[in-house]
């Protein structure tokens, strides 16, 4: 940021430059230019940036997606008071995309659009996400949904979405994930992946009854992938979270497997 050491820029303005860069991926210099021309009005500056084809002006070509159209679509759904698509906007977006909000595919979409939490889409993530997916109209977006569903079949993508889900589902300012929410998302994501999902949920409600840590959330997927059906290869001394160890013990007893 040595560029700004001249001192003529106020902290508030610096913040706006940052946001501008966030939305447009332009460099600081361009951001400053557009903001100055638009009297430091962020929204106007961004609009102007896309209207003048500023995207190409800063040397990057955004093939496949018209940034102006995308920005306009964002504005259509966005909350009147905040620069974000919130509950109402999400609902009508889902309607327009013809997607059930409880469909697992919404998680993939949220992941692509870098939604920080449920029913909260930001302009930056929106622009980048859709651009990467090559969509700038509702129709194109609707068409891309089935391919998003396909992505869940790729194990490494699934892990990304799964791990992302933790922070997505978590309540604001909370470190861990409330048990009910965690279970709801597990049931959404792991229904056909985890043979003992019901037992896991039963165990959590009966013995744990507390929030789930990020570590446990992430490691559960690894656990499902590496352990065999009767947990014979599970080693309680290795790096698994204690909660998973206790589950194995619980499950072995319930299912009548010999502890090996």
């Amino acid at each position: 940021m040595s560029f700004f050491t001249g001192g003529s820029i106020k902290p508030a303005q610096r913040e706006k430059i940052k946001q501008f860069v966030g939305f447009t991926n332009a460099n600081d210099k361009t951001a400053q230019k557009f903001l100055k021309e638009n009297n430091w009005n962020l929204e106007a500056a961004v609009d102007a940036f896309f209207a003048t084809g500023g995207a190409t002006a800063n040397g990057r070509t955004w093939a496949g997606a018209d940034q102006r159209k995308l920005s306009a679509l964002f504005d259509k759904y966005k909350d009147p008071d905040e620069d974000a698509i919130l509950v109402d906007g999400t609902e009508s977006l889902c309607n327009d995309l013809e997607v059930d909000p409880t469909d697992v595919v919404t998680l993939v979409l949220a992941w692509h659009l870098q939604s920080p939490r449920m029913c909260d889409f930001r302009r930056k993530g929106w622009m980048e996400g859709w651009t990467n997916l090559g969509c700038d109209t509702i129709e194109k977006m609707r068409e891309v949904i089935p391919s998003l569903r396909e992505e869940l079949k790729d194990p490494s993508k699934f892990r990304d979405v799964y791990n992302y889900t933790f922070s997505f589902a978590r309540a604001e300012n909370q470190k861990s994930l409330g048990l009910d929410t965690a279970i709801a998302f597990w049931e959404l994501l792991l229904k056909d992946k985890f043979k003992h999902l019901d037992l896991w949920v039963e165990f959590l409600r009966e013995k744990h009854g507390k929030a789930i840590s990020k570590d446990t959330w992430n490691l559960l997927l690894e656990f499902i992938r590496t352990s065999d059906e009767n947990f014979s290869n599970h080693d309680t001394d290795s790096a698994w979270p204690v909660l998973i160890d206790s589950f194995v013990e619980y499950a072995r007893e319930k299912l009548g497997f010999e502890d090996e």
Binding site: K214, D215, T216, D245
Partner: peptide, 10 residues
């Protein structure tokens, strides 16, 4: 020890 490790991760 494992519980302590988990707390430190947290």
């Amino acid at each position: 020890i494992k519980r302590c490790i988990e707390q430190l991760i947290e």
